[in-house]
Nucleic acid binder design. Structure first.
Lengths: 337, 337
DNA sequence: GCAGATTAAGGTACGGTTAACACAGGATAA
DNA sequence: TTATCCTGTGTTAACCGTACCTTAATCTGC
């Protein structure tokens, strides 16, 4: 590996001049620049990024903490982060926590050891450990998708979860579906609470209440959606529609309903949340809330970039708009049972 | 940020002793160790990883080149890589190339600038540029899932694609489905060629030939599967079964068939490849080839680790076993049209 | 009691790049 | 002519941890 010294010898200049010729060409004379470039060519020189990082004290890398890369929603967010990061000259260190606190801490530590300049968290862990607090006060940090608590106290980029759930619920009510059930994610998750609140908003406005028995808890996996649907069907009165808090649980629920011989949407309507790619390819197509996943990622990265530059954020809380996507899985129920 | 020097002052020892106390505790006396640890505590000292990396000339990071993180198969492979990497003490730099050569090169360059110690490539690009050649000869490199050419000339971890396609085709033939169609990926992809060869193996053994008109090219996306299926249905004789070279195209094809009023598998059978999570939740469940995606990732990372340690590889070509997963999307056709 | 071995700890060069500072020589203005 | 400024380039220190080389002290065995 050739170094800047070798190049400087070759070009008959000092190392500083080589450095300048490469990073601030306007500072050296055209003649010297030419010679340096020539020497760089001959030596096959590439500045050692490790040395640059060390010298500047920056890693030009940031960590993305995600519970599961294989989750199609998260992986889209990551794509957005990655694109923006590349544009900012930052590398993305993947931190798949697999829901484990110790793994999460191991990755978070990268922020404290200068291995990463910042951190985007996609899942929400609660409460903070002492080390987390140290981290949060030292290392630029942005939460995307899942605000951890309210008020957050740190930058958050998220969807208007409450509004989205309200709109989706309203859509169901507009179809005259009033006996609603819901498959939630983990009860302690803030987005679950926000979406539940949105749902209540719409129900209350219509003079309705959510039957506590019509609430089943899942964990955002397809299997859990399947199981939760089964549980809901055991109610004395079958719900007219099930609102699932993500598309995967909706897909699981659809599978369950089919296996029970129920037609969608004639017997029971289904709605999801996220608008993952598959939602357009289920049979019938899945009504859902479109989350601009890539956008979420981009915005989070842009905010983090600001912080890493030492600049203050214009707004601590960025809320992105949702969009209701109506497909065939929701419609007024045709034959009353 | 406190440094090793600050700690050494605090403990009244030299920096070397602090370093030893932390990395080789058995080399310092219990007494000194105690004092050093105390000082580390008080100072809140953490060794600067950037300095370590620089000093050792290693980044303790590797790049994963992937055409699209949001692809559920790749993201599972990445999960496997990530797990193994963490176990090896390596960080994973995400390189989503989005199919762009320039992005791929930008990430590959990380290997040449010591920002990464190695590289795993999940997609297959061809041919190599000069820079790639320099890279390949300098930076440890493993290809996973998609061998680029035959013989490879570099380490490859992959599934027995040919055998898997043969087994899946045999399964269809065993169901008395002889009029087969296939939806492939891009024709120049080596895995597509391998799978096609496996299909031919089974057909030839049964004294059959693949009708060239029964071959449609997709790009591994659901939409392309949908479109390809439409194209295949326009043949004079409707195929009895469609073998799709990944599950997503199969899902797209299923959607298409449904929209055409065809029943699966009664009118037409469908098979996929990969066994992504969704394959178990389609209606009907999708018959497919299970690729041990996480395993692929782990093995690739393990091989790369060997290379990064400067050790030779026991085998250049690691072939993982497939498994045929039969679900309801394939069955003997009941009513002949 | 002494040579030689062992253990504990200190001192410091090294790695590659760049920022800060220094300096020389030429141009400009008074 | 001289003071001032500018341009282009060189010199050097700093970034931080580690590994190597010493040194000092203690121990072992004869």
């Amino acid at each position: 590996m050739s170094t800047i010294r070798i190049v400087s010898k070759l070009a008959g200049v000092s190392t500083a001049t080589v450095s300048r010729a490469l990073k601030n060409p306007q500072l050296v004379s055209p003649d010297t620049r030419q010679r340096v470039m020539q020497a760089v060519q001959t030596a096959g020189y590439r500045p050692n990024q490790l040395a640059r990082n060390f010298s500047s004290g920056k890693a030009y890398a940031m960590v993305v903490l995600v519970p599961n890369v294989a989750n199609p929603f998260f992986s889209r967010v990551i794509r957005g982060i990655e694109q923006e990061a590349q544009a900012c000259g930052y590398a993305v260190l993947l931190g798949d926590t697999q829901g484990s606190v110790s793994r999460e801490q191991e990755y978070a530590r990268m922020g404290l050891t200068s291995q990463a300049d910042g951190l985007i968290q996609l899942d929400s862990r609660y409460p903070f450990s002492d080390e987390d607090r140290e981290l949060a006060s030292t290392v630029p940090f942005v939460n995307a998708c899942e605000r951890i608590a309210e008020p957050a106290g740190y930058p958050v980029v998220e969807l208007d979860n409450r509004g989205a759930a309200r709109a989706l619920t309203q859509h169901l009510l507009d179809l005259n579906l009033t006996r609603l059930a819901v498959i939630t994610g983990p009860a302690n998750s803030p987005i679950v609470r926000a979406r539940l609140a949105g749902m209540q908003d719409a129900l209350l406005a219509a003079g309705l209440m959510l039957n506590p028995a019509a609430l089943a808890e899942g964990n955002f996996s397809m299997q859990s959606g399947h199981d939760a649907a089964l549980q809901l069907l055991q109610q004395s009165e079958r719900p007219q529609a099930i609102f699932c808090m993500n598309d995967e649980m909706a897909i699981g629920a659809m599978r369950c309903l089919r296996q029970q011989g129920l037609r969608i949407p004639q017997d029971i309507a289904i709605a999801g949340f996220d608008n993952i790619e598959y939602a357009a390819f289920t049979e019938p197509g899945l009504t859902t809330i479109d989350q601009p996943a890539e956008q979420l990622g981009r915005q989070a990265m842009r905010a983090l970039y600001q912080l890493m530059q030492g600049k203050p954020l214009a707004q601590q809380h960025i809320v992105l708009p949702y969009q209701l996507v109506v497909r065939d899985s929701t419609a007024a129920i045709t034959d009353k049972k």
